[in-house]
Design a protein around this nucleic acid. Structure first.
Lengths: 353, 353
DNA sequence: ATTTTGCACTCTATAGAGGACAGTGCTAAA
DNA sequence: TTTAGCACTGTCCTCTATAGAGTGCAAAAT
C-alpha cells in the first residue's frame, strides 16, 4: 500500500487542488466532482487529470467518496491538514471587531460579562458558543459574615478570591443576636482572612483541639460555626462553570439533521461532562485549539468541530472559550472570531483588577 | 349551521365514543377511523353508525380530519372537552410518589431543591419540565455589608427577603478600610434593615437632602455608598426565575418533528419571555391549569400542551411549575404528577421556615 | 512521462404509474 | 335509528424508467 500517512509527499499542485476542493465543499456542502473542481480551481487542468489527483488524495486518506458516482468530501484528516497548513485566516472587518468590543466592555459586571461573551460568540458565528469559567486553583477567603435569619438559622456569606460570593444557610443550636454574630465575624475574619480555604479548614481543627484546654465560650461557638459553614462547602458546583448559548443554531445544520444525533449532542450540552473534559484539554494546550470531528474522541461530536481559545488576564490563563459547529464550517471566519473574543475577554477581565 | 359550540347537547353515546377516540389517538398518534373505533369502543355499534356520530362531532368542532380518507383526530377544543369533563385521572402508584418525595426532601438546599423539582418533572414525565421561581412582591432589606476589594472597589452584599443574597461591585472615590466599611454597614443596617427596598431608596434621597444642612462626613459617604449600591440594583434578573429541564425529551416527539417548529420552541425556551407570560397567567388562576395547543395564544406552542400547578407554602402562592409536551400527551398520567410535585415542593418549602 | 479524450459503467435522485389500503359520505334497506 | 352496500377519494408504497453526475480506465495526444 502506498498510503503513507505523510502528506508532505504530496505535490504542490495536489495540495492546491485539495485546498480548492475543501473550500468548495465548505461553501456548498455537496460532494465535489472533478468537473466542478476543474473549473473552480482555475488551473487549466482537465477533469481527467483532476480525477487522478483526487484518487491519490483519497489514497492518502484526505478525501472520501460517499459512493461511486458522487464527488469527494474531506475526511477528518483532510480537515486537519486544511486547517493546519492550508488555511489562510480572514482579517476581521472592523465593524465586527467593534461589535465584539462593545459587547465585552470592561465596565460590565463579571457574571454578565461571561454570559455576554458566550452569547456573542454564538451570535456572530451562528453556531453554538461556550465559555468555561475560571476555576480558581486556590480559594482565598477574604471575608466571612453572618446574618441572623429567623429562628436558629444563620446565613453565612463567604467572599472568596476577591470577587466570588458564596452563601449558605446553617442551623444553629441557639438563636444568635446580630451583635453576637458580628463579634463572631470579626473574630473569624481576623483569624482567617487572606488564607486559603483548605488551610482554614485545617486551622479550624487545630483550634477545636486547643479548645479542650482553655474554655472560652464565645470563641468556641465562633469556631464551631465556621466549621459548619465551611463543612457544606459547595465551593462552586462543578457543573456551573460552563456557559452555553446558541445551541439552537445547530438545529438547522443539515449534517447533524439525523435528529437522533442532534438529540445526543444537546444532551451532552446539558450534562456538560464531555464538553468540560474537552475544554480542559484545550486549556492546557497553549493558544488556539481545534478539534475536528471524530478526533475529539467523543462520539457525540462526530460531525462537529470545536474551535477553542484560552483567555488570560495578568498573564494567567483563566479559562477557555470557543464555538461548536459542524466540521464543515467556515474556519477562516470562525477562527479569528474566537481568537479575538478570547483576547478581548481577557482584556476586559484584566482591567477589572 | 347546527354547529352550536355547546357540547352539552351531545348525547352520552357521542361523548363516550369521543372519549374512546381521544384515548385511542393519544395512545396511537394516528387518526382514528370508524372501523377501529367500532371495535375499540365495544359498544356494539357498526362502523356506519360511528361514522354518523363522528360527522356530528366534527360539526361541533371537536374532531378534525387531516384529509378525506384518514380517520379523525381531536381538535384543541376537543382536547379541552376531554380534559375538562371526560378525563378520569390516574392514581399515582406509591413508588412514584416515593420517588418524588425523595427527590424533594426538605433538607436539601433551596436552589438545588428547585432545580431538582424541574429535572424530576421532566424525568418522570419524559417531557420538558419547568419551574418558575418565587418572585417576591416586596424586597425587604435584611442586611447590607461592604467588603473592601483592591483599590477603590467595594463589594456590596445585600441580604433580601430572608434568603436571597445579591452582590455587586461599586467603585468609590477613595479607598476605605475594613473598619470604616464596617461602621458604614452598621450605620446603614440600623437605618434601613427591615424596610422595603423601594422605601429605602426614597429614604436615601431624603437623607441626601438633609445632608445639605448638617454636614457629617462619615454619614454622608455612607448614604452615598448606599445609593450607589442600590442604584444598579438588578433585583434579580427577570430571566433567572425560570428553570427548564429535559427539553431534549421533546426532540423525539413526532408531532413537533418539523424541525423548524422545534427550533422555534427551543428558542422560546431560551428567551423565556413567552413561557414566563404563560406561567404568570397560570399563577393567578387557582389550582391546576392546562393550556392546550393554539389556545395558549403563542404560536410556538402550537402543537403543545402545558400542564401547570402553582405551589404554595404558608398558604401563600409562591410560584408555578409544570410540564410542556405535545397536545397528544397522557393527561391522565401527567396531571397527577404535576399536581403532587407542586404539593410536595410546597411542603418542602414550608418546612424551611 | 504527463495530460487529455473517449467511453462504458455505476450510483443517485426524481418523477410517474399503479395498486393496496384506509376511510369517508351517501343512499337505500332493515 | 341503525346498518349494509357501494362508489369515491386521498395517501402511501412499490416499481420502473430516465436523467444526471461522476467515476475509472484505456488509448491517444502533447
Amino acid at each position: 500500500m502506498a498510503s503513507t500517512t505523510d502528506s508532505s509527499q504530496l505535490s504542490d499542485r495536489s495540495l492546491q487542488l485539495f485546498k480548492a476542493l475543501v473550500e468548495h465543499f465548505i461553501e456548498d456542502g455537496t460532494p465535489v466532482g472533478s468537473r466542478t473542481l476543474s473549473k473552480d480551481s482555475n488551473m487549466g487542468l482537465s477533469p481527467a487529470t483532476i480525477r487522478n489527483v483526487m484518487a491519490d488524495l483519497e489514497d492518502v486518506g484526505l478525501l472520501h467518496s460517499p459512493h461511486t458516482s458522487a464527488g469527494r468530501i474531506p475526511t477528518a484528516k483532510g480537515y486537519r491538514l486544511f486547517v493546519d497548513s492550508l488555511l489562510r485566516v480572514n482579517d476581521l472587518n472592523s465593524s465586527q471587531v467593534e461589535k465584539i468590543a462593545r459587547e465585552l466592555a470592561p465596565e460590565s459586571e463579571y457574571s454578565s460579562l461571561m454570559l455576554r461573551a458566550s452569547s456573542m460568540l454564538s451570535d456572530v458565528t451562528q453556531l453554538a458558543g461556550v465559555v468555561m469559567l475560571p476555576r480558581p486553583k486556590q480559594s482565598i477567603l477574604q471575608h466571612i459574615e453572618f446574618v441572623a435569619l429567623s429562628s436558629n438559622r444563620v446565613l453565612v456569606i463567604l467572599v472568596v478570591n476577591d470577587r466570588e460570593v458564596q452563601n449558605r444557610i446553617i442551623n444553629t443550636d441557639k438563636t444568635y443576636s446580630t451583635s453576637e454574630l458580628q463579634k463572631i465575624s470579626n473574630y473569624l475574619n481576623e483569624l482567617f482572612a487572606g488564607k486559603d480555604l483548605t488551610q482554614v479548614r485545617k486551622s479550624i481543627l487545630d483550634e477545636l483541639e486547643k479548645m479542650k484546654e482553655k474554655v472560652n465560650q464565645s470563641m468556641q461557638s465562633a469556631i464551631e460555626m465556621a466549621q459548619q459553614a465551611l463543612d457544606s462547602d459547595t465551593t462552586k458546583d462543578k457543573n456551573d462553570d460552563l456557559l452555553f448559548s446558541g445551541q439552537t443554531n445547530l438545529m438547522d445544520v443539515a449534517e447533524l439533521g439525523a435528529a437522533d444525533k442532534l438529540k445526543k449532542l444537546f444532551e451532552s450540552f446539558n450534562q456538560k461532562r464531555d464538553i468540560l473534559h474537552l475544554l480542559e484539554q484545550a486549556i492546557n494546550a497553549n493558544g488556539m485549539q481545534i478539534f475536528i470531528g471524530e478526533e475529539s474522541g467523543y462520539d457525540v461530536l462526530d460531525k462537529c468541530s470545536v474551535v477553542t481559545s484560552p483567555y488570560e488576564a495578568d498573564g494567567q490563563i483563566l479559562g477557555v472559550l470557543g464555538v461548536i459547529g459542524p466540521t464543515r464550517m467556515h474556519y477562516e471566519r470562525i477562527i479569528p472570531i474566537v481568537d479575538i473574543t478570547a483576547k478581548m475577554l481577557g482584556a476586559a477581565l484584566n482591567s477589572k483588577n
